[in-house]
């Protein structure tokens, strides 16, 4: 099924918003204006935009510390993301979780985690709950290439397949785990091939092409929703700013980085949209200006907001903080 022009425009809007947020955070951290930590998603926007377009509001998404793009795609308000990163009460976790711990169940974002490989088992639990309740929601879980080397990934994949759970395992293969390239940690060349061991489809797509991701994701979602079970969707991409913000990236060969930047999903999709007549240059300029303005407004509001009060130290930790052992 081809993606209609309205959806293509929506994909670009999401990708541009993700990039604008990343650019602004990067500028602010680099100059000392913002003192938060950040694991940049610049370069991986096409995957998150496809998830944002294809997931229903009641579908669930789990992500990692490198989750800015995923959170924006699933509709977490920018104010709640920036607020959380900056430790403000307006943050999604009331400013007490930080960059790595953003959840917003109202948007279907159930977990962000800093523990590599921790997302898939939680996704399996959520999908099992949905199945037992007879809901037709799907749980998508996003994680890196490195996460597929953890035991928890393999256990989760096995159970998801065994029980035909409505899960989509979305691997954002950016070719590095911290400073280690995938060929130093995996005998197989394709993460997607790992699906064979569990009896589920494994699909590899160009993760820099939002339309390719959408096409494969739709099939995986349809399969999951209709009781067909999970899919492992490997999206091949790259992270342009290294592991953490400020990473000097000395371990990335210059030619590899240059080639990856030449395949930047944003300019590529922009030329596709103008070349095929889906949008004019002017319309795309407007989308970009609107995204930057939204980012500035949200950041200003987050910076102006108060940090959580000390009275909240124990709230949202235990149901009964007085009688629960600390």
């Amino acid at each position: 099924m081809a993606t209609d022009s309205g959806s293509q425009r929506r994909l670009y809007e999401l990708m541009v918003l993700m990039k604008a947020a990343d650019d602004r955070l990067s500028k602010g951290i680099a100059t000392g204006e913002l003192l938060c930590v950040y694991w940049p998603s610049r370069g991986q926007e096409a995957i998150a935009a496809a998830l944002g377009l294809c997931l229903r509001p009641d579908d669930q998404l789990l992500t990692t510390y490198r989750g800015l793009h995923d959170l924006i795609g699933k509709g977490v308000p920018l104010l709640e993301i920036f607020g959380e990163m900056l430790g403000r009460q307006v943050g999604a976790s009331r400013g007490k979780g930080g960059t790595m711990h953003i959840a917003r169940p109202e948007s279907g974002v159930m977990l962000s985690t800093g523990i590599v490989g921790a997302g898939p088992p939680v996704a399996v639990g959520l999908a099992l709950a949905a199945k037992r309740r007879g809901l037709d929601r799907v749980t998508a879980v996003s994680f890196g290439d490195g996460a597929t080397n953890t035991g928890s990934f393999h256990e989760a994949a096995n159970m998801a397949a065994l029980w035909d759970l409505p899960v989509v395992l979305v691997c954002q293969n950016n070719q590095y785990a911290e400073m280690t390239p995938t060929e130093h940690t995996m005998k197989v060349e394709r993460v997607a091939d790992r699906a064979l061991a569990y009896g589920m489809p494994g699909v590899r797509v160009d993760g820099n092409d939002p339309l390719a991701v959408v096409a494969s994701l739709r099939q995986a979602l349809e399969r999951a929703r209709s009781g067909g079970g999970p899919t492992l969707l490997e999206c091949l991409t790259f992270r342009f700013r290294g592991h953490y913000f400020g990473d000097p990236m000395a371990y990335i060969p210059k030619e590899q980085l240059a080639a990856a930047q030449a395949a930047d999903p944003l300019p590529r999709f922009r030329s596709h949209l103008t070349g095929t007549g889906v949008c004019t240059e002017g319309e795309l300029d407007d989308i970009e200006a609107a995204a930057s303005a939204r980012v500035e407004d949200a950041l200003a509001a987050a910076l102006a907001a108060a940090p959580p009060s000390i009275d909240e130290l124990d709230s949202d930790v235990y149901g009964d903080p007085t009688h629960c052992p600390a």
């Binding site: 951290i29 680099a30 100059t31 000392g32 204006e33 003192l35 938060c36 930590v37 953490y244 913000f245 400020g246 990473d247």
Partner: peptide, 12 residues
């Protein structure tokens, strides 16, 4: 006035 601060150039 824009304050010039020592930035967090690395996580740890």
């Amino acid at each position: 006035a824009f304050p010039v601060r020592i930035p967090r150039v690395s996580v740890a």
